[in-house]
Write a protein that binds this DNA or RNA. Structure first.
Lengths: 229, 229
DNA sequence: CGAATGGTTGATAAGACTCAACTGGTGTGG
DNA sequence: CCACACCAGTTGAGTCTTATCAACCATTCG
């Protein structure tokens, strides 16, 4: 982690990107900008560990982060991938508890940090903040329930289909948010099985995948697979 | 569903049981009691369907509820079981959105209903309410992440172990919160596989299970299984 | 250049699913 | 009151998918 020293204007620009802060007035946003620090992380750096006191809110400005836990036998289990602009561990920070998971960058990333104290200070005059948090958590909850739904799918091919659909945002082309290995983990598959599932979909002509770039070639075919398996 | 007509005192008693309301003063609690309705549900009744507008908060007072979704191929997937006292679909209600899942009783149940309008009214004078909601959602999030973790476990026996541990609350004896069929679904297993996993644990002498009653006979053995698989 | 890493492919084996039969308990209707 | 159907749960046998182990390729990085 490196701490950068950008002007407050630059930081204000980042603050403006964050949905949590969008309804705040300029004075408050400036206050946040002044009381924030900007850090850059190399790929593989940890933002925090499970069990750390959640005293600082991490806001992902650029890059990508993987959030995961370890199961008792030592295996890592990815819970989700975050892309900017994203709050990371916001519930733990606002509750003043410990982070319940690990956060690690999956690529070079830019992170804005704001202390819990600063957040509580602006919340005092902006009571809409907790409601916004409720909204984010509601979304995350829906996201998790979608993940559980995906895990309920039996076949590897189906899981990959569901996943591609969910991250496509109805676009025909997009990039995978993380290395295939990590995505396989997220989907509860071995890298080998993920690879094989992808190659089945490619041979079908449903998709095309080179490196991290995905092209949906036959949307209907994906839908069919979802309804059958 | 039957609407009961208890006195306001009785309803106040139920309001007093709900953690969300514990910090409120008597006047506010009475207001809630007066503006609530008490309903009884038979086993198998639906509290709400996925897609229903979340205009009323359901609070489980007695009984048990299963929350689930349907995956596109038609299969049902249980997300969690709720036991009293529990808010059901609270995030959707406070956000004024649609319920994102189905809620169905798994036994005869008693439910207190409070309208969104009433809740918003008391929130105006009790700004701690949204923070409490954040707290509940945080817990639910942790619960979901634990579920995802459980699904990551490969073997059926391990999943059952994790599950039994998590609902035991470190007690030696307890009852299953739902029919085995439903629990199997929650664990992402077929009823047959669940049954077999249980019988393995019984033959090991790790547990004893008759009908719905579980006795943990060898706690260390469960721990071992968790660390190995 | 050599090592390490991410990804693919092949062969095998283990585990869960499927289908089927059977039990015991519950509830219904004649 | 009994015969019957029905449902949850268990057990058995066979199949099928995925994990596993291993080899291999391509790329990156020191």
């Amino acid at each position: 982690m490196k701490t950068l020293k950008p002007s407050n204007d630059v930081k204000l620009q980042y603050v403006n990107m964050v949905p949590l802060f969008e309804s705040l007035d300029l004075k408050t946003k400036t206050f946040l900008a002044v009381n924030s620090t900007l850090n850059s992380f190399d790929k593989g750096d940890f933002l925090f560990n499970s069990g750390d006191p959640a005293s600082v809110l991490n806001i992902l400005i650029r890059g990508g982060v993987s959030v995961f836990v370890y199961v008792p036998n030592g295996d890592k289990k990815v819970l989700h991938f975050l892309k900017p602009p994203s709050l990371i561990g916001e519930a733990a920070v606002f509750m003043g508890e410990e982070f319940p998971a690990y956060a690690q960058t999956i690529e070079e990333s830019l992170v804005l940090k704001i202390s819990r104290a600063t957040l509580l200070e602006i919340t005092r005059e902006n009571p809409q903040i907790p409601w916004k948090i409720v909204g984010f958590l509601f979304n995350r909850l829906k996201h998790f329930s979608h993940t559980i739904e995906t895990h309920a799918r039996k076949s590897a091919v189906t899981r990959v289909c569901v996943y591609l659909q969910s991250i496509s945002g109805n676009k025909k082309q997009f990039d995978l948010p993380a290395p295939k290995k990590e995505i396989a983990n997220f989907l509860g598959l071995r890298p080998e099985s993920f690879s094989r599932a992808v190659s089945v979909l490619q041979k079908n002509g449903a998709i095309e995948l080179t490196d991290s770039h995905v092209i949906i070639k036959n949307c209907d075919m994906l839908e069919e697979i979802l309804e059958e398996n």
